[in-house]
């Protein structure tokens, strides 16, 4: 037992700890040599702590969180709703499904100048950017899931004169939900990308704003600190997404991943 634990530690825990340690040491050495280009880890942490103490960090996180929340919520509601609608309304599916795939190819970053020109840089315009980035993975996964609903079940339900809402409750939703949640899980990560894009390209507020302004002032300690904070948040979002995905489809665990 003790030996097993040792082996597990050696195999699973040691490698990432070692690589993080090497990375930190390399950063420290390089940071001492080139303090302007790459400030030391210590200063990066100090910069974060100072911002946290003065409250700017919390204010920025709040601003970013607002965009993120509005954009993601809209993307989830509209993405799933439209995806399910496409599953049941054939005319809509035949006429608009191709548009979804075509629009998805447009890089949202390239659309931001037009959003800025048309809607300005208020919370609404920025949330729109978040929405546009997050909605496509959700919508496309929902459509895909609805396509996966076994035709036989739909036919049996119809033949047994199932009411429309019963059909949704008993057949369509249970079969589509896991795929929709996979989409939401991707959307959770994508919305974060959208939030940063909105803050970079519309007007600098929130966490992205801090980053942009600090880099214009060459404050590499702040830039590095905030970059790492964002990386940690991004990993956390992906983790949350995975958990949600697992909750929605416990029976798929270990089947296709």
């Amino acid at each position: 037992m003790g030996r097993n634990l040792g082996v597990t530690l050696w195999r699973k825990v040691f490698p990432p700890v070692l690589s993080l340690g090497i990375g930190l040491a390399a950063w420290e050495v390089l940071g001492r040599r080139e303090p302007i280009l790459l400030d030391t880890p210590r200063h990066a942490v100090d910069a974060l702590v100072n911002m946290a103490k003065s409250g700017t960090l919390w204010k920025a996180l709040g601003e970013s969180g607002l965009l993120y929340g509005i954009g993601l919520a809209a993307a989830i509601v509209l993405g799933i709703a439209y995806g399910l609608l496409l599953a049941r309304v054939r005319l809509l599916r035949d006429s608009t499904e191709w548009l979804v795939y075509a629009l998805q190819a447009v890089p949202v970053v390239g659309v931001t100048p037009f959003i800025l020109a048309g809607l300005g840089f208020g919370v609404g315009a920025k949330s729109l950017v978040v929405f546009l980035v997050a909605v496509f993975p959700i919508l496309i996964n929902t459509i895909y899931g609805a396509h996966q609903t076994p035709t036989t079940l739909l036919e049996v339900a119809k033949l047994s004169r199932s009411k429309e809402w019963c059909l949704w409750r008993d057949v369509l939703l249970p079969h589509t939900l896991p795929f929709a949640m996979a989409g939401v899980s991707q959307g959770i990560a994508a919305a974060f990308v959208g939030t940063i894009a909105a803050e970079f390209f519309l007007n600098p507020t929130g966490v992205g704003g801090i980053l942009l302004l600090a880099s214009a002032r060459f404050q590499s300690a702040t830039v590095l600190g905030v970059t790492i904070l964002i990386a940690v948040l991004a990993v956390a979002f992906i983790f949350v997404g995975r958990i949600l995905e697992g909750l929605a489809s416990p029976w798929r665990k270990g089947v296709d991943r």
Binding site: P15, P16, S19, L20, G23, V109, A189, F192, V193, I196, A197, F200, G208, L211, L212, A214, S215, S220, V223, L224, T227, I230, A231, A234, V235, F237, I238
Partner: peptide, 19 residues
């Protein structure tokens, strides 16, 4: 490699532009 690969892959790439 996981901390770097996973972290960088999750990171919105835009964030690396200032650096």
């Amino acid at each position: 490699a996981a901390p770097y690969v996973g972290g960088l892959y999750a990171l919105p790439l835009l964030v690396l532009v200032p650096t």
